[in-house]
Simulated assay, not measured.
Amino acid sequence: MLPQAVSDIRAVLAKPGCTWQEFWNVAQEYEVIKSDYLAELTTQETDLITALQNASSQPGTIGVGSIVAHADPYRTLYVARGEFTNRGKG
Results as ranks from 00 to 15, higher is better:
3 P>G: 05
3 P>F: 01
3 P>L: 02
3 P>T: 02
4 Q>C: 00
5 A>W: 02
5 A>S: 06
6 V>N: 09
6 V>G: 08
7 S>E: 11
7 S>C: 02
8 D>A: 07
10 R>Y: 05
11 A>K: 10
11 A>E: 07
12 V>M: 04
14 A>C: 11
15 K>L: 00
16 P>G: 00
16 P>T: 00
17 G>I: 04
18 C>D: 06
19 T>W: 04
19 T>R: 03
20 W>V: 00
20 W>F: 06
20 W>T: 01
21 Q>A: 01
21 Q>V: 02
24 W>V: 09
24 W>N: 14
25 N>V: 13
25 N>T: 14
26 V>F: 00
26 V>D: 04
26 V>I: 07
26 V>R: 01
27 A>C: 12
27 A>P: 07
27 A>D: 12
28 Q>F: 03
29 E>W: 01
29 E>Q: 09
30 Y>H: 11
31 E>Q: 12
32 V>H: 11
32 V>F: 04
34 K>V: 01
34 K>I: 01
35 S>V: 09
35 S>N: 13
36 D>Q: 09
36 D>L: 05
36 D>E: 09
36 D>T: 05
37 Y>T: 06
37 Y>I: 04
38 L>A: 01
39 A>Y: 05
39 A>E: 10
39 A>W: 01
39 A>Q: 12
39 A>S: 14
39 A>M: 05
40 E>T: 14
43 T>F: 10
44 Q>I: 04
44 Q>E: 10
45 E>L: 01
46 T>V: 12
47 D>H: 12
47 D>N: 15
48 L>C: 03
50 T>M: 07
52 L>E: 08
53 Q>W: 02
54 N>Q: 06
54 N>D: 06
55 A>N: 05
56 S>R: 07
56 S>K: 05
57 S>C: 03
57 S>Q: 11
58 Q>I: 10
59 P>R: 08
59 P>C: 05
61 T>S: 08
62 I>K: 15
63 G>A: 08
65 G>T: 15
67 I>T: 15
68 V>N: 08
68 V>E: 05
69 A>F: 02
69 A>R: 09
70 H>Q: 13
70 H>C: 07
71 A>L: 07
72 D>A: 12
73 P>D: 06
73 P>G: 03
73 P>H: 02
75 R>C: 12
76 T>Y: 00
77 L>C: 13
78 Y>I: 15
78 Y>R: 14
78 Y>K: 14
79 V>Y: 11
79 V>Q: 13
81 R>H: 15
81 R>S: 15
81 R>V: 14
82 G>S: 03
83 E>W: 02
83 E>Q: 05
83 E>Y: 07
84 F>E: 10
84 F>W: 15
84 F>P: 12
85 T>G: 10
85 T>L: 13
87 R>W: 06
87 R>V: 13
87 R>I: 14
87 R>A: 11
88 G>D: 09
88 G>I: 02
88 G>Q: 02
89 K>L: 06
89 K>F: 04
89 K>T: 13
90 G>Q: 08
90 G>D: 12
